[in-house]
Amino acid sequence: MRRYNNRLGIRGWIYAGNYGLERYLYFLHRISGLGLIFYLLLHIGVTSARIYGGAAWEQTMSLLSGPAFKLGEYVLMAGAIFHAANGLRLIITELGMCIGTPGRQEYPYVSSVRKQRRLMIVVMIIIAVLLLISGVDFFIL
C-alpha cells in the first residue's frame, strides 16, 4: 500500500509549530556554527597571504575592505558571540546541570526546558549586551 512520507525535512529544523525559543536557538546555533566553520576555512586561506610579503598582504587587505565587508565582519562576530554564549548554555544543560532531577511529576508538568529557561534568558541578555557593545565599537567609535 502506498504511504505518504510526512517527514518535515530541513524545514522542520526551522519551524515545526509553536514551541519555546530553545527550538529556534537549535537552528540558529546550527546556522551560526556552519557559517563560522566555512569562514574559518576561508580565513586560513586569506591570511596565508602574509607569507608572500607585504605587498601581497596589503593587496589582499585592500580587496577585503569597504562597507560591505565591514558589515560582513560584524555579522561574523555576532555569529561568534551568539554561538559562544549559547554554546556555553548548551554545555551546562547537556551535562545535566540547571535542568532539574528526575522525580515524581505532578500536573501541570514542569519540564527540563522550563527549568533552564531562566538561564536561557540570562544568556540571551548577555548576547544582546555583547552585540550592542561590539556594534558601537565597530561602526560608531
Binding site: 530553545e22 528526575p102 511529576q105
Partner: peptide, 21 residues
Amino acid sequence: HMAGACAEVCPKGVDPALAIQ
C-alpha cells in the same frame, strides 16, 4: 542538541530531554 521540544509536548511529563542529558 537540547532543543527541548520533546519535553514540551510530552503528555505524561516523562521529559525525554532530561533523560537524554
